[in-house]
Design a protein around this nucleic acid. Structure first.
Length: 503
RNA sequence: GCUCCUGUGGUGUAGUUCGGUCCAUCAUACCGGGUUUUCAUCCCGGCGACCCGGGUUCAAAUCCCGGCAGGAGCACCA
């Protein structure tokens, strides 16, 4: 060590003062062009509401916007009417989910489908300039030529001819698949995916928002390229599966003399415990009746997390901590849950939920004066939250069948009891020894309850009773000795429906 | 097959640009202990990693070369 020190003094003295490594916290720095404001965008396909994976895009983009006092645009990339058709209800759901996750409204919301005129005009302009051309080859014919770096016969035609065919595409005189607009690139490009890539194609389907007004629709690479430029987007943060998209768009930008935004990528994320879910496949399963809806607790959707009681703050912290690596990763749900527990613990009041309740009669032998009112904190560490008051009444209580066994046990926050048959003899109000502590509830203060518990691909129901002290819909509770749950509904008859969150 | 990306403990992540107090950061998981009238929260301690092989160098997680492994794209989807 000293030897190293000596050498350092001679050769590299400043290395001696170097600080010991620290963990970088928060998002990495962005390369920012001198003073120009940062503009980002989050561009989902509204073929369904957001999944957990999407929430990464929301968090990263909105957090970068916050960090640099920039803007973030929510853009609906809804220019496909066929393979992943837009879902009418998804637009408003996504907008709301964006706000919920990020804690802010997007600075601008745009729908690609409502800006079609712009894309079509740009395309026509580019065709007449010879930057793009109309190709009449079939997809398979073109692929074959492309793979051998050969030009197809459409490539060399005059711009005027392309424009004419373009008009036919627009008017619907060419059938789907009969023509496509391509960006003229270099056929010698090593990456075959980039050679004369398709920019717009014909789709005669009805679009759920704008109807059948348009026969030609831009593909993502084209629509996004034009829109990013128009909106002055400075930074694109996207999945690395879109790397080729960046390259295609960069080629187009070069042809047009535009500057391509800085681009950052993240890798693929797999959530352990959830299979490979895509928005399309979830949508299909829901429509097929396998799930109750987008917020089915078994689904890795934002609406399901929200329903179950996850806090958006946990999601934000989680994704920020993960940062922007291009590694493909597998994440256990426990990582997110642990973040969430720490956040919601301080706001979650405690309640007793007794699964499979068994009624016991408290017996007071007269030596103790116990029947009556008892008072328990709503949160053990936060006295300001107040107390829950129970009235033992005649002494009827519930404990869980799982906790039942004859002998001595401590009823939490109350007394040591000796259980025999259906009675529980109060032995001591003070805690004596190290008796097992179980949770319980006075029948007087209880009401029927049912909790939805997702287990793998099944939904289980835990039936029981819950303490009826000030329970309200939408409240996140910590059930004593169990974990967190959300109150979903309270019926006319005071039956409480809960949904399980996590331990 | 072609093009591209990525390899740090069980899982993630910092450090890699510009080689040096790096026998490597932090979190989570796990193990042990403490606080607590919850199996929650909180606190303390422990465990455990630079994909492999060469090269350059006084010095390599970091630079170079070669392997290997995993992933993505090669859609008239996004």
């Amino acid at each position: 060590m000293d030897y190293v020190k000596e050498i350092l003094e001679e050769t590299n003295p400043e290395a001696l003062n170097r600080e010991k490594q620290k963990k970088r916290v928060g998002l990495p720095d962005l390369e920012v062009n001198n003073g120009k404001g940062v503009i980002l965008r989050f561009a989902p396909n509204p073929n369904g509401p957001l999944s957990i994976g999407h929430s990464r895009g929301v968090v990263i983009n909105s957090e970068f916007a916050k960090k640099y006092s920039g803007k973030v645009i929510l853009r609906f990339d809804d220019t496909d009417t066929k393979v992943k058709p837009p879902l009418d209800s998804a637009y408003s759901m996504i907008e709301e989910e964006f706000e919920w996750i990020s804690g802010m409204k997007p600075d601008l919301v745009i729908r690609a489908s409502s800006r079609m005129e712009i894309y079509l005009e740009s395309a026509e302009e580019m065709i007449s300039q010879g930057i793009c051309y109309v190709c009449r080859c079939s997809a398979s014919e073109f692929k074959e030529l492309r793979d051998s770096k050969e030009a197809c016969k459409c490539r060399g035609k005059k711009a005027e001819e392309s424009v004419q065919e373009w008009k036919m595409m627009l008017s619907g005189d060419i059938d789907e698949g009969g023509a496509v607009v391509r960006v003229k690139t270099d056929l010698e490009l090593p990456n075959p995916a980039l050679r004369d890539w398709p920019a717009l194609r014909i789709q005669h389907n009805t679009h759920p928002i704008v109807g059948d007004r348009y026969k030609v629709w831009p593909l993502l690479d084209f629509q996004s390229a034009v829109e990013d430029h128009l909106q002055g987007v400075t930074h694109i943060v996207r999945g690395k599966d879109l790397m080729d998209s960046t390259r295609k768009q960069t080629l187009l930008y070069e042809l047009l003399g535009w500057d391509y935004p800085e681009t950052l990528y993240w890798g693929r994320v797999k959530l352990l415990g959830f299979g490979g879910f895509s928005t399309s496949s979830i949508r299909k399963s829901i429509e097929g009746g396998d799930f109750t809806g987008w917020d089915d607790p078994r689904l890795p959707t934002v609406s399901a997390l929200r329903r179950r009681g996850f806090s958006p703050e946990a999601l934000r912290e989680f994704w920020i901590e993960l940062g922007l690596t291009q590694k493909d990763i597998s994440i256990p749900m426990e990582s997110i849950e642990s973040k969430n527990s720490k956040i919601i613990d301080r706001t979650s009041e405690r309640r007793s939920f007794i699964e499979s309740p068994r009624e016991l009669q408290l017996v007071d032998d007269g030596s103790t004066d116990t029947m009556g009112l008892i008072s328990i904190r709503r949160h053990p560490d936060i006295p300001d939250m107040g107390t829950r008051e129970w009235d033992l009444g005649t002494g009827s209580i519930f404990i869980s069948e799982n906790d039942y066994s004859e002998g001595l046990v401590r009823l939490k926050d109350f007394a040591d009891v000796d259980i025999k048959g259906d009675s529980a003899l109060i032995v001591s109000k003070e805690k004596t020894g190290n008796l097992p502590i179980i949770h319980w509830v006075s029948s007087n203060n209880s009401t029927e309850a049912r909790m939805i518990v997702p287990r793998d691909s099944e939904i289980d129901y835990a039936e029981g009773v819950i303490e009826n002290i000030e329970i309200s819909t939408g409240q996140c509770l910590q059930l004593e000795r169990m974990g967190f749950a959300m109150v979903e509904e309270i019926s006319e008859t005071n039956r409480v429906s809960l949904i399980w969150l996590h331990g």
